[in-house]
Design a binder for these strands. Structure first.
Lengths: 160, 160
DNA sequence: GTGCTTGCAAAGACTTTGCAAACTT
DNA sequence: AAGTTTGCAAAGTCTTTGCAAGCAC
């Protein structure tokens, strides 16, 4: 299921991102493109470090600093979403799909992060916050859980 | 509204914690007591660093390392709850009260963290997770919001 | 050419850890 | 006495930043 050529969707997203850069008076550089392309090598959630590795596969002039400097731009432009799993590092995920509110379900055994649509949660959080006189910027529901398959069998086929 | 003498509740909690320590073959030390007492000097949510400051007020032999070493014990014993606000440091809060599921509503202007009961969320997260074959350990709903009062008036009376 | 970008390495912020002395039980 | 705990400072981890050279526009 490897993706050989860049999909239409990816190219559209790239157009959006480079427009975003230009509109802010920022430059469209080879490194930024490398980092951008590396996003689509990622599988689900990834860290800055993982992104660096993949970006370097595509363009070995990419440095760690540039990855760290690009990530906020990718988040701001909406290409990437920051996923806060609490402990450990920051995780990111490509935000191709939806505007929907997502809950993160983190399996403590598999180390897998599931993203689950949870529109109801959004409504709920908003309602509560408005009662407090607050204007919601973003919300996250995070669930940490153990894998029952792992508990019973001692292993889990979701294990990466 | 300063609390001069340790309340019954605090003493009960201390008893629970020292029993917890003993049951694990750990020692009840002056520093651990100092850190424990400092918990009740904290106002709402606090960081390891803040706890260190207050613990040192009560017992100047308490070191940063001991605070960092104690916090996991306090969490494990249930005295303290870790509150993950995403960015920034780890926060903690005393867990005197409830077993209820709490949502954290973080005001980006006030820097205040509100804890809101959200029993429905708990049900929801559990339901979703069980469908995935996962056994929920804990969950958190975090809402980041802006203070409408701040936006309109340029200040906020909740500001600390 | 102007001024944003880059890599590098150093610096930062926060947390953990090795070790010998001190303390709890 | 035996084994846990402590403070200290050093080491770690992840992320940010200063700087001079290099690019995009």
């Amino acid at each position: 299921m490897a993706k050989r050529k860049k999909s239409k969707k990816v190219e559209e997203t790239w157009d959006g991102f480079s427009t975003f850069l230009t509109s802010k008076g920022l430059r469209v550089t080879g490194q930024r493109r490398g980092i951008f392309d590396a996003l689509f090598e990622e599988d689900g959630h990834f860290t800055a470090e993982q992104l660096l590795v993949h970006a370097r596969n595509l363009d070995d002039t990419v440095s760690r600093a540039t990855v760290y400097r690009s990530l906020p731009l990718l988040v701001e432009s909406g290409v990437v979403r920051e996923v806060d799993v609490g402990h450990d590092n920051k995780f990111y995920t490509v935000n191709l799909n939806s505007e929907n509110f997502k809950a993160q379900v983190v399996c403590l055994d598999c180390d897998t992060i599931y993203e689950v649509d949870a529109p109801f949660m959004e409504w709920y959080g908003k309602t509560v916050s408005e009662k407090l006189g607050l204007d919601v910027q973003d919300q996250r529901l995070q669930v940490r859980a153990e894998c029952t398959q792992f508990q019973h069998l001692g292993s889990c086929d979701r294990n990466k």
